[in-house]
Amino acid sequence: MTRYTPEMRERALRMLAEALPDHPNLWSAVRHVAGLLGMSPETLRVWHRRLEVDAGVKPGVPSDAAEEIKRLKRENAELRKANEILKAASVFFAKELDRP
């Protein structure tokens, strides 16, 4: 999997925006620009879709909200794990206190 820099992404999206008027549809422009840049048309199409969602043009979860959801899910999982450990410890110590 090739990772592109944010600058490359911005450049590709800028080129796509400039090429759109010269093509009959989005997919044609995506294929053209992706070919010029030597990247997969699907990568460029996904970037364009993400740009539209983030701009509120298309429905979907914006990038910043998706990142926040991912962070909160990770935090929730850690808290659940800690809670289970604390429950197990409280059971253990409760048994110790019941011993004569």
Score class of each variant (00 low, 15 high):
residue 94 A to R: 14
residue 38 G to T: 03
residue 64 D to A: 08
residue 80 R to P: 09
residue 32 H to A: 02
residue 21 P to I: 00
residue 20 L to D: 02
residue 68 E to R: 11
residue 97 L to Q: 12
residue 40 S to A: 05
residue 45 R to S: 07
residue 62 P to G: 14
residue 99 R to N: 02
residue 97 L to R: 11
residue 74 R to D: 12
residue 10 E to N: 11
residue 4 Y to G: 13
residue 72 L to G: 08
residue 98 D to S: 07
residue 21 P to Q: 03
residue 90 S to C: 15
residue 76 N to D: 10
residue 87 K to F: 13
residue 21 P to Y: 01
residue 57 V to L: 08
residue 83 N to M: 13
residue 18 E to I: 00
residue 80 R to I: 09
residue 13 L to P: 05
residue 72 L to R: 10
residue 90 S to L: 13
residue 66 A to Y: 00
residue 82 A to C: 04
residue 78 E to D: 08
residue 46 V to F: 15
residue 95 K to V: 15
residue 82 A to W: 03
residue 6 P to H: 07
residue 67 E to L: 01
residue 95 K to A: 15
residue 29 A to E: 03
residue 15 M to A: 03
residue 3 R to E: 07
residue 70 K to C: 09
residue 42 E to L: 11
residue 19 A to R: 05
residue 46 V to L: 15
residue 62 P to T: 12
residue 49 R to K: 06
residue 92 F to A: 03
residue 54 D to V: 10
residue 29 A to Q: 00
residue 7 E to W: 00
residue 4 Y to F: 15
residue 44 L to I: 04
residue 29 A to Y: 03
residue 90 S to E: 14
residue 41 P to K: 12
residue 22 D to Y: 04
residue 85 I to Y: 05
residue 63 S to P: 00
residue 26 L to V: 15
residue 44 L to C: 08
residue 42 E to H: 09
residue 49 R to F: 14
residue 15 M to L: 01
residue 33 V to W: 03
residue 46 V to D: 13
residue 99 R to W: 02
residue 5 T to C: 00
residue 35 G to A: 02
residue 61 V to E: 11
residue 74 R to T: 05
residue 43 T to K: 11
residue 68 E to D: 09
residue 74 R to G: 12
residue 25 N to A: 01
residue 2 T to H: 14
residue 10 E to D: 15
residue 52 E to Q: 11
residue 46 V to P: 07
residue 39 M to P: 09
residue 10 E to Q: 07
residue 92 F to L: 10
residue 22 D to N: 04
residue 75 E to Q: 07
residue 6 P to A: 09
residue 72 L to T: 12
residue 56 G to F: 02
residue 20 L to S: 00
residue 87 K to S: 14
residue 8 M to A: 15
residue 70 K to Y: 14
residue 96 E to C: 01
residue 63 S to E: 02
residue 84 E to Y: 10
residue 37 L to N: 01
residue 81 K to H: 13
residue 13 L to H: 06
residue 43 T to V: 13
residue 19 A to W: 06
residue 64 D to Y: 11
residue 34 A to E: 02
residue 79 L to F: 14
residue 58 K to Y: 13
residue 20 L to W: 02
residue 7 E to M: 00
residue 23 H to A: 05
residue 15 M to K: 05
residue 100 P to Y: 08
residue 88 A to V: 04
residue 95 K to G: 15
residue 40 S to C: 08
